[in-house]
Amino acid sequence: MFELRLEQGSLLKKVMEAIKDLVNDANFDCSATGFSMQAMDSSHVALVALLLRSEGFEHYRCDRNISMGINLANMAKILKCAGNDDIVTVKADDGTDSVTFMFESPTQDKISDFELKLMDIDSEHLGIPEAEYDAIVRMPSAEFARICKDLSSIGDTVVISVTKEGVKFSTRGDIGTANIVCRQNTSVDKPEEATIIEMKEMVSLTFALRYMNSFAKATPLASQVTISLSSDLPVVVEYKIAEMGYIRFYLAPKIEE
């Protein structure tokens, strides 16, 4: 059997809100390592990889590896029924075709359980190679979300360029152009407000803003976002999930023909 218990149930709610519009169905893999998921959007332009390590849960039991096929919109519907302070337990017995979500209020005076039917999903697992990135930008996640939102009111694509000057986000559309430059800034009171740019090589890549805005739905999960860029690879937009793992979004670039 498989069982996990998470006192900070709001975290699972946030994870679902971050991915439910990007991916329709996905296999959630449960192993001794933890609870993980990898899935592409329907057009295979973006990939999301989620890992919640077993040590991060208050209770985690996985007798044997299982893969649970889940419709994310339906899982999000169920998790919406959990209170923000609720303790969440997820349970699946071997050989059954459903998974149970149990929500306990902090004072234990309300206990709900929801059973979600599992589905057979033909998903392709992709091997993501370890890569040395040309540039890695760490910045406040809210700032990144704001930039993507602002630029999408002007254009459909964003050019992200990293140079010695900083990281530049540019777009163009019918009404004109926009450029937003963020410089490295480590002289802030709080580390979560810092912008740190590690550059090995200058890099400039073009991406669809629609996807960036979708990734930014993970903003409530982490105060900082890490953007890793290489000229011949998909960008990685990573949100760390406190002490537990991460949600990583990979986005294939737009390439000049």
Partner: peptide
Amino acid sequence: HPKQSTITSFFTKL
């Protein structure tokens, strides 16, 4: 116009 590439052209299926 630049053309949208796909994830599967970068990462291989396992």
